[in-house]
Design a protein around this nucleic acid. Sequence first.
DNA 1: AAGCTATGTGTAAACGGTTACACAAAAGTA
DNA 2: TACTTTTGTGTAACCGTTTACACATAGCTT
Lengths: 328, 328
Amino acid sequence: MATIRDVAKEAGVSVATVSRVMNGSGYAHEDTKKVVMAAVEKLNYKPNEVARSLYKRKSKLVGLILPDITNPFFPEMARGVEDYLQQFGYRLIFGNSDEKRDKEIEYIDTFLQNNVVGMIASTSEEANENFDNLDIPVVLLDRTAEKLPAVYSDQKTGGKLAARVLLDRGSTNIVLIRGPVEIKPVYERYMAALEELKQAKVNVQVMDSSLTLQGGQTCVKQLFEQYPETDGIIACNDIVAAAALQEILKRGIRIPEDIQLIGYDDISFTALLHPPLSTIRQPAYEMGAQAAEMLIKRINQEKMEVTHKKLPVSFVERQTTRRKAEKT
Amino acid sequence: MATIRDVAKEAGVSVATVSRVMNGSGYAHEDTKKVVMAAVEKLNYKPNEVARSLYKRKSKLVGLILPDITNPFFPEMARGVEDYLQQFGYRLIFGNSDEKRDKEIEYIDTFLQNNVVGMIASTSEEANENFDNLDIPVVLLDRTAEKLPAVYSDQKTGGKLAARVLLDRGSTNIVLIRGPVEIKPVYERYMAALEELKQAKVNVQVMDSSLTLQGGQTCVKQLFEQYPETDGIIACNDIVAAAALQEILKRGIRIPEDIQLIGYDDISFTALLHPPLSTIRQPAYEMGAQAAEMLIKRINQEKMEVTHKKLPVSFVERQTTRRKAEKT
DNA sequence: AAGCTATGTGTAAACGGTTACACAAAAGTA
DNA sequence: TACTTTTGTGTAACCGTTTACACATAGCTT
């Protein structure tokens, strides 16, 4: 790899001059510029970001921490972040935290050691303090904290909406599957749904499940044993909903006639299920992109009106819920 | 952030000594070590990777280029890579190429500018030359090239297997959905399946589709119009298979009685489909992990027996193919 | 006791950029 | 013309590490 010194020699100027024409900073004679650019071209010179980053004390790298890229909800978000940052020449250093505090800390540390300009993180509640004394901008994604800017979606409305959908469409024995309570957004949607259900005159049962397929399957199996009269299920996410759907089909229960089911997230394969799953949509890609936008504003020290951006969710009506007209 | 100089001052030694005790290189008196470590502890010193990387001309960063993290096949692979590298303290810089040459080149360049120690890439055929004159190790993932080490799966056996499955289970009017021919592994599995089918005395039709849901849907709709007598479909991947499944169900065709369907990849939601999709499994996570392992060996200049690692695929028998006993 | 080797430590030069500063020449102003 | 400002360029310090080298001292050998 050619260095700035090679270019300087080739062009017969000093390194300072090369640096100036490369960055368009300071003065440089038109003719000099040409000579330098020719040398750059000839040697295929690309400035070493590491050296630059060392002097400037900041790189063109952004750290991204997500719980688990293997969970279909997150790739969309990651892509949103990447696509947005990419336009501005920023690159992503990426890490899966598995919601584990140690891993988060480890990543934060190494990100810092690499002089990242900023970080975007879906971090667990308690780990927020890890970000507290950083002197680089951080934006939370899909999670919130008072002190940090954040982009997330309207879990409360989402939970409420899910409940409303089943209620409006006539379910009266509803099981609400609660995800892990430590995961704030999941807990919030649960609470909102629960509240909404309680105000209606229906039977409500709560069951616990992890966010994974396996967790969903065990949960759902139990569900039908304990509450065979169930005619409505609100799942904590689409994966668990898919598990429920499978169990429902296996038991020969008609859906949506005998039982209604609603998921959460609207991850891609949700439309491919049979019957296609009704769900509450979170705009994952958009969330990622907006978090990136916010981060860049922070980096550029632009003044920010809003630091907490709550994106709207929506009900995606498919075929595991009844048409509103045809209430039972 | 504390620097090595701060630590040196705090400990009352020179920076060289601090560096030596941090790295366990050269001599250092036991007492000195203690003093230094105490200072490190006190100041919470973490060496700046950027400076280190500048001097050493290599960082602890590995570049990863994948076509699209949003395609469920890749997160598994990415996770395999990450989990493996993470143990050795390497971090990932990540980029989506969308199979586009420019994007690949752009990422390769910036990765290089950041002094990555190595790269793992799922790159398009022609772009291989981009890696040619690099002086850092590269390993291809899910793709192959003569000159570069690679980890991939046995597409030929996979394609053949898919064909064999339908054949052995009695399909005689088979449609083979071919993915984009530019994507080598997809093309290979197609060719292998085609060959196998041709040797049998069955009707074979070929249709084209992209690898996306949308592409699959359009393709499949046409499929049934053009070849209503079809009793077996081999899809180029699971997503397209899912689209096919949906169309089959919509048309009220019985599966697997009237038609058999087999996918490719065994991405996670494949088991959640109804009926669960029979497919050819590629060990995506394992592929990622092995590519990482290979890369690390290269980085450490370890001698390598095999540079091209072909991982086995397997038939995952679910319910869109008939039991072998109950051939029609 | 003299001459080794092994141990312990510091100084300073890299690594590849950016930029403050100095200085010179050109251009503008009175 | 003499002075000021603008333009153009180079020198060298700096960013935070690592390491070659020099040097000093301790511990062994005879």
